[in-house]
Design a protein around this nucleic acid. Structure first.
Length: 504
RNA sequence: GCCCUUGUAGCUCAAUUGGCAGAGCAGCGGACUCUUAAUCCGAAGGUUGAAGGUUCGAGUCCUUCCGUGGGCACCA
């Protein structure tokens, strides 16, 4: 570490100039020299706290009507990061950022005196400072604080991103999210919006009588979704655990236990490829409601998502007003491709029908019937579902936890919701017949033996829970990251996850 | 895993057909008491992602590797 501090000139007067260069190391060295100068002057560059701060947003709100040139007697203490500086002589203007906004500071030598003024001018962009001052409105109409006191709150030793362009490099924005946040106001706003999405969802469920629960992330058996898990090892118990791919099975055991309305909001982990809509760890909401079915779940989903859109002032092209368009799974595929999947109940037959329609599907002849059906939906239907759409009644073969449809054989009471060409939710009338559930697991075991790495492992404890008796239940899973993508108009999940997975 | 794309100063971006690597901001020295992408003067700042190769000469062309972004595959 290069800590070769220059001799300390008077505060505010810059370092001797002989060692002032422009490389990254030298930029840091200049800042370290200023740090040393503060310490030499008996100033703590990293004080422990700074009380009595008013947010810039609150200062602005209190003086929204102030006219150009107006003075006040109103004093405030604000704190934040130094963003820009104009003027260097007997008067300077500085911009100070906090989470709520930006405020101009006016520093006058005749107000502050030589020592304080010099110290203030010696600050670097990016330094965290506390300011005591009095509100006025500049001749050009800019709400400002006339500085009366300056407190260094934390010295910044590295240069901040460009003050106008912010941080543009996508890789650095994701790898060094703190630089993205401090350099790009819209990035900060996005994550505030994300928090609002989550708090709104919570409030909706809390107000509807749901209780929030926490179930294991480290699971001895994974289940509740069709996906490959991450595996880890517990040393003391000397056994492998899986990071959960879903919360479904534990939550249904809580319904068996009589909690009736439960939800969990947290991370799931799936060991699959990354894409604009997949991150290996992602935030999932699941809720289960006793005595409800999938129609009730659909209505609740519409209501919650609509409430979220209102809460974040969504103004994009999607219309989340309930009720959303409903189409049947079979009908949606037939409409988009002309193929009636129920008329072709085996794989070879269905593959022939797909080929007859001239549709593109890779590996057509190697795929199982469920795979063919799933591909038809994901490649030929899903991308075109822009406006919120609920696709109802999925085939039983791809729905191991959904109850058989009350009137249509071969189908289940399951829907997925799509918006912006993406799946955002998956819900069923939950299968609560333990014998049928046991058969479904056995079918999954056969898929697994046939080489399907995503088939469900048999979960005997879960089946025994169903044998205890689970009330009729509606359950739903909602992808929170994708919901935030929709609400903010972002096309990549990496934009809405603070620290997305990156290659090393 | 495969294909395409991209990587230049701390940050944002240029560089014609292969012909002296440049600008703005930031930083440094100086001027400036209502500026706000402040302005003005001055001096600086580079292993062009890495390693090889072709060439009189490579940021530019070729090979390999690393990372980004996009697509495919995977995601029954």
């Amino acid at each position: 570490m290069s800590d070769d501090s220059t001799p300390n000139p008077a505060p505010g007067h810059s370092a001797d100039g002989s060692s002032t260069r422009g490389t990254a190391d030298e930029l840091i060295a200049v800042r370290r020299a200023k740090l040393d100068r503060l310490r030499a002057d008996g100033i703590d560059p990293f004080p422990p706290a700074f009380g009595g701060v008013t947010s810039i947003g609150d200062v602005r709100a209190a003086h929204a009507e102030l006219e150009a040139g107006a003075e006040t007697e109103d004093r405030y203490r604000v704190a934040g990061r130094l963003h820009a500086r104009r003027g260097q002589g007997k008067m300077a203007f500085l911009d100070l950022d906090d989470r709520s906004g930006r405020l101009q500071l006016q520093a006058k030598r005749d107000v502050l005196g030589e020592e304080v003024m010099d110290r203030l001018l010696d600050l670097d962009l990016g330094d965290l400072v506390g300011i005591d001052g009095v509100v006025f409105c500049s001749r050009r109409g800019e709400l400002s604080l006339r500085v009366e006191g300056v407190t260094v709150l934390a010295k910044s030793l590295r240069p901040p991103p460009d003050k106008h362009h912010g941080l543009q490099d996508v890789e650095q924005r994701f790898r060094r999210r703190e630089l993205d946040l401090l350099g790009n106001e819209d990035s900060r706003a996005l994550f505030v919006t994300r928090a609002k999405v989550i708090s709104t969802v919570r409030r909706q469920l809390d107000d509807a009588g749901f209780i929030e629960v926490e179930t294991p992330i480290l699971q001895p058996l994974y289940g509740g979704a069709l996906a490959r898990p991450f595996t880890t090892h517990h040393n003391a118990l000397d056994r492998d655990f899986y990071l959960r791919i879903a919360t479904e099975l534990y939550l249904k055991r809580l319904v068996v236990g009589g909690l009736e309305r439960v939800y969990e909001l947290g991370k799931d982990f799936r060991n699959e490829g990354v894409s604009f809509k997949h991150n290996p760890e992602f935030t999932m909401l699941e809720w289960y409601e006793a005595y409800a079915d999938y129609e009730d779940a659909a209505a609740r989903l519409e209501s919650i998502v609509h409430a979220v859109a209102v809460a974040v002032n969504y103004d994009g092209e999607l219309d989340f007003t309930p009720p959303w368009r409903r189409v049947s799974f079979v009908g949606a595929i037939q409409e988009a491709t002309g193929v009636d999947i129920m008329a072709h109940p085996d794989a070879a037959d269905l593959a022939e029908a797909i080929r007859a329609k001239g549709l593109e599907l890779k590996g057509l002849d190697e795929l199982t019937w469920p795979q063919l059906v799933d591909d038809l939906l994901s490649k030929h239907v899903e991308p075109n579902l822009r406006q919120p759409t609920i696709v109802m009644d999925y085939p039983v073969a791809i729905s191991p936890f959904a109850k058989a449809h009350r009137t249509h054989p071969g189908l289940t009471e399951r829907f997925e919701a799509f918006c912006g060409g993406m799946e955002i939710a998956n819900a069923f009338t939950e299968l609560n017949d333990p014998d049928v559930q046991r058969e479904r697991f056995e079918a999954q075991a056969r898929y697994s033996e046939a080489g399907d790495k995503e088939a469900q492992p048999y979960d005997e404890v879960f089946v025994q829970a169903l044998e205890q008796g689970m009330p009729p239940t509606g359950g739903l899973g909602l992808g929170i990251d994708r919901l935030v993508m929709l609400m903010t108009g972002k096309r990549s999940i990496r934009e809405v996850v603070l620290f997305p997975a990156m290659r090393d």
